[in-house]
Nucleic acid binder design. Sequence first.
DNA 1: CCCCCCCC
Length: 293
Amino acid sequence: MEIQDRIIPISALNPYQHRWAIKARVTAKGDIRRYNNARGDGKVFSFDLLDSDGEIRATCFNAVLDRFYEIIEVGKVYLISKGSLKPAQKNFNHLKNEWKIFLEATSTIDLCPDEDASIPSQQFSFRPISEIEIAENNSIIDVIGIVTAVNPSVSIMRKNGMETQRRILNLKDQSGRSVELTLWGDFCNREGQNLQEMVDSGIFPVLAVKAGKVNDFSGKSIGTISSTQLFINLDSSEAQSLRIWFDRGGKNTTSQSISRDINPGGPKNEIRKTVSQIKDEGLGDQINQTGLL
DNA sequence: CCCCCCCC
């Protein structure tokens, strides 16, 4: 039987299904990770696959990685066959599939050169910002909003002593809430730089965040992780609807932030006084007595 | 068989 005749939907894959093939688009490609553990040295990479009704993550190691890493390109469609299906671990893999594919020496991956319009380029499950307020800490979510403010990139010393870049921006949507999005590492000077230039010149772009991580330090915020993807001015109905909402008045409506202030001590503290003014007016006395100051 | 994802 030809490979083409064995094509099944991704949603039909399971460990008991042998001699399968899938036809799927690569929606994300991870970097090569090197590891060293009790089993020895190794390298691994993963990529995400989407067909017209399902998604799954594929992973390969070492020699198999050497065969496939260069072939895999985001956006392209492939015919993939053979490999073992293992349970997906939800703490590492947010895709809507209870299985993942481990590619093996007998696996095949062949590029389908013809464009297949039946397979979308990405699949999103956007959550309104108001819902992120009640999302579980560390959960992985998709969100779309208008970028209303972008802070500069700053250098952050991580707890492990490694330096990295951080850039915080603000997202607002039609739910009446806004949220902080923290970009890390390369996102800061790639998409982050681009977004800053747009906002600086008065353009407030739509930003779609695929696979952002919910953080619950001082309210709820979202941070990028290695599998996060950012899409500026995405071509989609959700983006279009946000654009229209913002341009027709959403721009001037106030949103309640579900995060701490982007500028601590900024707009919220309208009345600013010097320490001597505070002492003169006895403003701190009551607080001092409660032991809060 | 990897699996870290950061700062206050």
